[in-house]
Design a protein around this nucleic acid. Sequence first.
DNA 1: AGCGTCTTTGACGCAACTCTGACGCCCCCG
DNA 2: CGGGGGCGTCAGAGTTGCGTCAAAGACGCT
Lengths: 238, 238
Amino acid sequence: MMSPTGGTPQTPTRVLVIDDEPQIVRALVINLKARKYEVDAAHDGATALELAATRHPDVVVLDLGLPDMDGVEVIRGLRGWTRVPILVLSARHSSDEKVEALDAGADDYVTKPFGMDELLARLRAAVRRAEPTGGGEDDVMVETEGFTVDLAAKKVNRDGKDVRLTPTEWHLLEVLVRNTGRLVSQRQLLQEVWGPSYGTETNYLRVYMAQLRRKLEADPSHPRHFVTEPGMGYRFEK
Amino acid sequence: MMSPTGGTPQTPTRVLVIDDEPQIVRALVINLKARKYEVDAAHDGATALELAATRHPDVVVLDLGLPDMDGVEVIRGLRGWTRVPILVLSARHSSDEKVEALDAGADDYVTKPFGMDELLARLRAAVRRAEPTGGGEDDVMVETEGFTVDLAAKKVNRDGKDVRLTPTEWHLLEVLVRNTGRLVSQRQLLQEVWGPSYGTETNYLRVYMAQLRRKLEADPSHPRHFVTEPGMGYRFEK
DNA sequence: AGCGTCTTTGACGCAACTCTGACGCCCCCG
DNA sequence: CGGGGGCGTCAGAGTTGCGTCAAAGACGCT
């Protein structure tokens, strides 16, 4: 009826399935893959958080009954650094459970046993509303007098030539550019680029900011666009 | 447990309730108003679409069983021009109904009879995820005739130029500005900026208030905006 | 298996920020 | 009228944070 991404052919939607019951995981994986989703699976909370950090899923399906940690803790762990839609599965019908999960940051709550059709529809709904912007074309191009960043094409142009960025460099640049003019805290940068457990490794930031400045600033040692706010974070200015 | 808007006191969340059963509408309206939502109600689809257009609700609660038109048509009518979250209520448990409604653009689907707690939690979830991107980025700006404070971007502008503040200076300014016009006790300032164990080191305050005044006041020795209340605390005035 | 690229880690010098103490002022109170 | 506590100001000392470089480790590709 509808492609996972909602019609626009682009990179496939990535789903992270978290459940400790193998048969449920299998059923989900089969159904999702058949519909051209890209699927990762985890059977406990720790693995889940790790996978979420490294794979950056577009939507998370989470069973609350995990062996190693409370499902709500997983929600909080995710919400600490990402707004990825979270669809909760649970065998518990109690109203309190639902309220707790939803208020912790879940986007939807489905009780088992569930219909696969319904689950997939809810998944589509969750992904759909998370999509970038609905109404109008947002400007995916950001220009400075020294270089141009094309967020959609994932390209940076300088003096007519494309600048080669490594994945990490790009990711960092993307977070900064998406917050043009705003200060982005070191913690937020680290967590968005490297994952939730990297909130304090500020040396990574120093290295990669230097890298970005070397590649994009006219005078890397006196940056005009990638501004350091000592003790707080970094800011991208046009 | 949580204010409708998620903590920041601003304009109340507006809900549009669409249902033809008076007792359900009444129950919803009472519960919503008690939680400080602003509520509009419609008992048929035509009125609903009209109200949605004129009142611009932040979230819609829609019963699928309407007298004048199919509920799914209402969803489509809304989705034609707005991305407002739509929470569907329905007596039908059939999977097809849910899939159809969700794929038409609904954000959530709750079957009757429903628990009020759960419904409210789902409503909060729907509003929450729509907030930051939906209505538009409202930067929290505070202006005086001498300078401008942008709390979101963590920026202070004076005479067209950005003022450089250290982390401590920012933190202090932030607490004061968030309490504009109100007196903030020394103890509270110290504990919020330096931590719970620093309730008495008022000399810190003196040093950093001086710093702030030097950077922001036109005449630092005769402050107009950062007012000392001797023996009590400090107050920020526009 | 070998190679190239990307990421991570450590060490160093330098700059920025925080803390601290001394001093003088003003206002309140005795 | 004199004393004292609270406040503002200043500048130095100590600490932390930042930029830079280089090399080792991890990863993927051929």
